[in-house]
Design a protein around this nucleic acid. Structure first.
Length: 880
RNA sequence: GGGCGGAUAGCUCAGUUGGCUAGAGCGCCUGCUUUACACGCAGGAAGUCGCAGGUUCGAGUCCUGCUCCGCCCA
């Protein structure tokens, strides 16, 4: 074996091997419990970032863990066509060639997108493989593939037939750059520095009229009223009268409406029903006409007369300039507002009335709420339930049509002759209403999230009643970031219940977002994004995975830490070398039966600690505490198995070749290493498989071995206590040596004064370990010193006094000072303890257990203090 | 405006039902080529657990208020 672990020599080969043997293939198997995770499908044009790496690490861990626990574990991979995002990417590529999608035409453009999709898809799946994902590639799906398209079609038609999908003209969010309508969720509000323009609308007779305040002066061209609050004393007399809309010279009424905020601006609101949702409502209440002044390209319409054709922002400047010139611009204030922006291109969206397809959400939201009310779906962490619930309780209808080319076409045909709609599962050749063959399919496509909403069941074969759907659905756990609870999780739950009749998963384990080492959001534009590929190149996939696991906290954002990568990489190497050590010493192994073997203290101790660790890992994984599970393994492997057991094991390993002790130790090392590897495997699949293959075993892959379980019969409280005492002795001797900077190779003589014979015989039985681990030559033991050594440094702990005999002479003054420092520390603790025990409330109210523990503590403090004082006395008399 | 999360060692974070002499990794200091590992070993320094109150025998942990940071919704 190499002296250091070389991930790059291992990972590709191991992954290939897994694929060859079908290690991750899952089948319908009624003898086993199903466990299923469907991957949140990455956008097919995106690049996998740290968030994906985190997500895949979690899901792979859960899947491998369950697979080893005997579940039929399916992790189903796939990618998302990501309608608008992908179309934008390809349009940007075309733009570099000086082309637009219209230059190519719909068919060629879509063909081009498919081509780009293939390239990106390869990169994405390559990266997934590098991460070590144990997905069943045979079952990989794509939201636009044939089966899923059929699911989309079925879902749409079903909802249409149920009246839950309808077409209508409503005010929607329009992105002038993308040229499509958007759902409310795809609009982001971002604080921006803007202005508040105060514009005077004079009366027809030249009277002063009213002053309105607006953040969007260009929309005034479409004003059809001014609204004031009915109780507003300033404007009471104006209500019902008219003013002249400047620039357009249109006479518009002043109406009274409760919606108006008297505190805002002048308390008078210009009403533009065509370009603001609130204004639209006011307009409807007062039967105001609607004048469309901004078109779908963000340009001014013919209705704006001289401004027609101007871009909305050019128009804004022009309108302001013209108003100023006419003396109608009263003032301009700085103002912070939050204009809506397109999630994909950051363009300020334009609210406008448009005919679109909608999903009626109220009935579906009720289903979504029922899912959590009936505890069919559990959120982890639980607090997200509230977020989910509140969104569903206040939901608006979902605009699902997009004026894009990349996506699922809306399965509706319009009849040129009778004007009716035909919505069908199979492409119709004629109108169902009048049988005319002059029918045209709706040119629009569906919101990409419509197909995503079906993902957990469409990937399993729905609408067909496949065995997979029957067996794996509902899936076990969904593991998305909390940022897509609304976009995705809620919609999957609603659609799953509504269309399949059951919730799509029973648990939603949400993870946070990955931030850079300064806590900033990672983004390509800011240049602070960390590329998982680079991390895996540098540290290996296992190290990255372990580091991510260590950083995962429940639903909290994860701050990327390069230090963690180094630490995790080092742990890989530690594991590698510990294994190297064990394997090197296993060549002549003849296993013994542990039940009948003579076990040493260290043997009993490590078996007990090992068993405890397994129980802890199980407990933490059950609670989705992945970091704590990883920590339990890490601490045990490094701090106990390597630092103590392996060191002590060397004594027997390097002794007599045929001794039974050697065989016993070999057996234990083998058993423990095998279990350690299996325990860590879900966290670090590559290195554990690589090492496991070198163990003397005949299995095919570690990924299909049973997951180790805590063995109750290995628990040994006595061994743990005794070992703890032994560790104290060794640690104290080492500390004394370090105090004197005695070189590690130089053996020292030690005297231990122990409180009782029991302790003496325990330490005596561990002489070899002490000699080896603390480099001790002569070890003297006694319950009381016949003659206290005066040429020695001493330490006191757990009722024992440990003397390190010096080769030279002791600096008595220094030693006294050192002991006094120790006494000071102990005195503080003693005082606290005494305080507690003198408090009658504590004695009466605290549980007996806590009180007696406190008494023991105090006794130990007293005992140790006494020893330290004795030592000082001794040294003082010696110095005189 | 409503809601949620965070604030613990220099940095990144654990600390699950209150009992803690508050832990880990990295960093820092001292010593060490000890036959698995210098990606290592041994030893060590380092925190009034955001602030102010309260409940309790006992609070990093529970309650109230506040400050700052971040996020979501309007």
């Amino acid at each position: 074996m190499e002296k250091a672990y070389q991930p790059q020599q291992v990972e590709d080969r191991i992954y290939q091997y897994w694929l060859e043997i079908g290690a991750f293939d899952a089948e319908v198997n009624l003898d086993k419990q199903p466990y299923c995770i469907v991957i949140p499908p990455p956008n097919v044009t995106g690049v996998l970032h740290m968030g994906h790496a985190l997500e895949h690490t979690i899901q792979d861990l859960l899947t491998r863990w369950h697979r080893m626990r005997g579940y039929e574990a399916l992790w189903l991979p796939g990618t998302d066509h990501a309608g608008i995002a992908t179309q934008n990417v390809v349009e940007a590529m075309l733009a570099e060639e000086g082309l637009t999608r219209h230059d190519l035409g719909r068919e060629k453009f879509v063909a081009r997108v498919w081509q780009v999709k293939e390239e990106h898809h390869r990169e994405i799946t390559d990266q997934l493989r590098r991460e070590g994902v144990s997905v069943d590639w045979r079952r990989e799906r794509f939201t636009l593939d044939e089966g899923l398209s059929r699911a989309v079609r079925e879902a749409f038609v079903t909802l249409y037939e149920q009246g839950l999908i309808y077409r209508g003209a409503r005010m929607i969010n329009w992105c002038p750059r993308c040229g499509t309508g958007l759902s409310d969720l795809e609009v982001e509000r971002e604080l921006a520095q803007g202005h508040l323009w105060y514009i005077r609308y004079p009366e027809p007779d030249g009277g002063p009229g009213v002053v309105v305040a607006t953040t969007r002066p260009e929309t005034m061209l479409g004003d059809t009223a001014v609204a004031v609050h009915p109780q507003d004393e300033r404007y009471k007399e104006m209500i019902g009268k008219t003013v002249i809309l400047p620039l357009m010279k249109r006479e518009i009424p002043i109406v009274a409406d409760d919606y108006i905020d008297m505190e805002f601006g002048t308390g008078a609101l210009k009403v533009t029903p065509a370009h603001d949702p609130n204004d639209l409502e006011i307009g409807q209440r007062h039967q105001l006409p609607s004048v469309v002044v901004i078109d779908r390209d963000g340009k001014m319409t013919e209705a704006t007369g001289p401004y027609a054709g101007l871009d909305r922002y050019e128009c804004r400047e022009q309108v302001v300039a013209d108003l100023k010139e006419q003396g109608l611009l009263e003032r301009i204030e700085d103002y912070q507002h939050t204009p809506g922006r397109c999630e994909r291109c950051n363009t300020v969206i334009e609210p406008l009335v448009s005919t679109q397809w909608f999903v009626q959400m109220a009935p579906l939201a009720a289903e979504g709420l029922a899912a959590v009310d009936n505890k069919k779906v559990r959120f982890i962490p639980e607090r997200w339930t509230k977020v989910y619930r509140e969104w569903l309780e206040n939901i608006e209808d979902w605009c699902i049509s997009r004026q894009l080319w990349w996506g699922h076409r809306i399965p509706v045909w319009y009849c040129d002759d009778c004007g009716e709609q035909t919505c069908a599962r199979e492409d119709p050749t004629q109108c169902v209403h009048c049988s005319s063959e002059n029918i045209q399919q709706d040119p629009d496509v569906l919101d990409t999230w419509f197909s995503s909403a079906l993902w957990p069941f469409s990937t399993l074969g729905w609408p067909d009643e496949t065995p997979e759907l029957e067996y794996f659905y509902p899936t076990s756990v969904m593991n998305p970031g909390y940022d897509i609870i609304f976009f995705w999780v809620a919609r999957m739950i609603m659609m799953g219940r509504h269309l399949v009749g059951e919730e799509p998963f029973s648990e939603v384990f949400l993870h946070g977002l990955v931030r850079d080492e300064h806590g900033q959001k990672m983004s390509k534009s800011q240049g602070n994004a960390v590329d998982p590929i680079e991390l895996m190149d540098e540290y290996g996939a296992d190290a990255m995975r372990l580091a991510l696991c260590q950083l995962i906290t429940h639903g909290q954002d994860v701050t990327y830490s390069p230090d963690r990568m180094v630490g995790a990489r080092n742990f890989c190497n530690k594991l590698w070398n510990a294994s190297r050590f064990v394997i090197m010493n296993l060549e002549d192994m003849q296993s013994v039966e542990l039940e009948s073997a003579q076990l040493s203290l260290a043997d009993r101790w490590i078996l007990s600690r090992h068993s405890r660790m397994l129980a802890e890992v199980q407990r933490q994984l059950d609670g989705y505490n992945l970091a704590q599970a990883a920590e339990a393994i890490y601490d045990y492997v490094w701090g106990e198995f390597c630092d103590w057991y392996a060191e002590i094991a060397k004594i027997d390993l390097y002794a007599d070749e045929d001794s039974s002790r050697r065989k016993t130790v070999q057996t234990i090392l083998y058993i423990l290493l095998d279990e350690i590897l299996r325990t860590i495997h879900p966290f670090m699949p590559f290195i554990t498989e690589e090492i496991w293959q070198r163990l003397p075993q005949s299995g095919e892959t570690i990924s299909r071995q049973p997951y180790p379980q805590s063995q109750e019969q290995w628990r040994d409280e006595e061994a743990e206590e005794q070992m703890s005492l032994l560790q104290t002795v060794i640690t104290q001797i080492r500390a004394l040596r370090a105090e004197l900077t005695i070189s590690p190779g130089q053996p020292a003589d030690v005297t231990v004064i122990a409180p009782n014979d029991e302790t003496i015989s325990l330490i005596a039985s561990q002489q070899e370990a002490i000699a080896s681990l603390a480099t001790v030559e002569e070890l003297n033991l006694a319950t009381a010193p016949a003659e206290p050594p005066q040429d020695a440094l001493s330490a006191v702990s757990k009722g024992m006094q440990i003397y390190l005999h010096l080769p030279g002479t002791l600096d008595i003054e220094e030693e006294i000072k050192r002991i006094r420092r120790e006494i000071n520390e102990l005195e503080k603790l003693r005082k606290r303890s005494v305080g507690k025990l003198q408090n009658s409330d504590f004695l009466n109210k605290a549980p007996d257990e806590v009180v007696s523990k406190e008494r023991e503590k105090l006794a130990e403090f007293d005992r140790d203090l006494q020893k330290l004082w004795d030592q000082i006395k001794l040294l003082s008399s010696a110095s005189r």
